[in-house]
Design a protein around this nucleic acid. Structure first.
Lengths: 195, 195, 195, 195
DNA sequence: GATGAATGAGCATTCATTCAT
DNA sequence: CATGAATGAATGCTCATTCAT
């Protein structure tokens, strides 16, 4: 890689990192392209060499961070250590919730913007075949393809929505208090799908 | 009510109606205070006599519309016609989903902004005692207070999140196709809570 | 007229005057809305209360200045003192050329932008009925309506175009040197039209 | 010509052609140096190796296109087939007007920018001795040098100005309708000069 | 000669908010 | 109470020009 190319990579990274930091601290609306460029140490015009506008960099960040989060969950949770399909899914969710808990900025950023559309594009573009992974987890022998997708969709939306208020505002209860109820629900959803 | 008071009520109503129309058609960001005032037929300064700023009127609208939506569901759904607790809850959800389906602008407006916090404040301020109503619906004899709240919270978040993508973007499937899976999940959640 | 209305008139006048000064000294492209507002002593936003954009104020100025110029010519030239139609037209042109000579900025501004379209709209909107005036001058008994219009159009375009280079750049000759040739041509055009 | 030299010629030609295409379609203001370079297939910096800036290439194009237009007129019009001086001049003008009519982009480009100065420089730099040609056409025996120049100048400005509005906007009439009036005027100007 | 990444001044436009009337 | 003229900070975005490679 030539020196120029290296430099470009650095600039792009710097812009991405700065944007993420500002988005998660000040919010997207309050963050201006000027802010990002300035704090990333490049000229305003340079921003536009790398991203079309604020929403371009936002989407790229969402996809990137989402993928990272799932990868972490798959890498770190002990879903492989046996148990039922529901056990495994809950293990993964547990890791994700812990990540969120540790980094509320990340939660705020991803969750407010994550839609099934962006998610599926994100995991689709990824190098990992998530759908296969989940199919494997859910021992998909017993579940049709549609069944799998609907169940996944339901769980993702439930977890995403429910954890938002619970983690960021401890409302109506704290995450620790809510977890049993959430996991019981997830388990019920999966078991209902398996029949 | 004096004539003056009446006039004030009228202005406020006009502002609220106009704001709602603009929020649901152009989006909140693209709607300016100027737009609202002008289309409501009052001077820009007058807006500030009634609302602190754009977000003040927004919150009031969310609470109002949410309440209206629930009231409609309780009034129109046939949840009284017998059946299990789950049957009744699903009847209510069904009415709400139909409302959303008919008015995607309303969905977009409420859902992107509705959090449990606003919701509980909205129903709390209401003249109807929703919590009692739900308690009654779920034949709460068998469910503790916390259990009830957690179950309600879980269901509301699930339905809110899941219907967003499904209704507005038919993604991953259409509402009609998704309903069986959603209702099965809701039923599973309630039944798990009842044990 | 209330105090407010008076103030508005003043602001608009100030903006118009400042814009004209800047347009004729720096050129339209190099003049920014910021410049105009600042030098007119109002805030940038105020500009947009009075004019849609730079080109709006430009068009209004063109129309205004054109009308002013013709009015001056009709008021000050001795076209009434008898002579042939051609004599009268030339008297008017002479006054206009003198105005231009005295104020090259005005010439540069009007001429580069004046098109028959803008001109006819400008004189059409005016309180004076120019067409009637010209008809009277040309003793229109002998000239059909179309004939009149075509002759007017031809002369206006000729004078406008020819004087530009001659006045602003003394190229190919000075105005004084060119006048005999120009007037001879104008006379020839009118006489050819009268037959 | 060496290969390198050839390559340079090619680049310059490509830039000129591209610039002309963009100038006549998007207009000069809306055309950026970036556009020109990109569409010409060279790097942005390369543009500056050949031209000082946008206005440099513009002037070169004006001169070039003007010359081309006159050359076409002299080559294709039947001004040689006899008739009076006025007949010949009108034949040439007729060819030029037809060129303009066929290519309004060219008209817009040349006319808005063509001044006598650029024109005389353009035809002066040319390999053809236009002035001699015109002298010959006007059978200049009877016309002094100054007389010739003034007449030429007058006719060029008149035709240039008058055809602009007529061709591009059919205002106040269409070119076909205007031609008789224009040619009559031209004839009158020439005949007046001949006496 | 050629490249194209980087610059950053510059501009048009919007809009929440104030306040004199 | 109501008005709406005025403000001016803020922002997204463009583009001519430079210069290290």
């Amino acid at each position: 890689m030539g020196k120029v190319e290296e430099n470009k990579q650095q600039k792009e990274q710097s812009l991405l990192n700065t944007a993420f930091r500002l988005f998660t601290t000040k919010g997207i609306i309050k963050t201006s392209v000027s802010d990002i460029a300035q704090q990333a140490g490049v000229a305003k015009g340079t921003f536009y060499l790398y991203f079309r506008d604020k929403y371009d960099i936002q989407n790229k960040l969402i996809a990137h961070k989402t993928e990272q989060m799932f990868r972490h969950a798959l890498d770190h949770s002990d879903y492989r250590s046996g148990g039922s399909a529901a056990d495994k899914v809950i293990a993964i969710i547990d890791d994700i919730l812990d990540q969120m808990q540790r980094d509320p900025g990340l939660l705020r950023f991803i969750n407010k913007n994550l839609s099934w559309g962006i998610f599926s594009r994100a995991v689709g573009r990824s190098s990992i075949d998530y759908l296969s992974t989940f199919r494997e987890i859910l021992e998909l022998g017993d579940m049709g393809e549609t069944e799998l997708q609907m169940t996944l969709y339901t769980i993702i939306e439930l977890v995403g929505a429910a954890c938002h208020s619970v983690i960021l505002e401890q409302d109506p209860v704290s995450l620790e208090q809510y977890k049993p109820y959430l996991y019981r629900s997830v388990r019920a959803i999966i078991e209902a799908a398996e029949q």
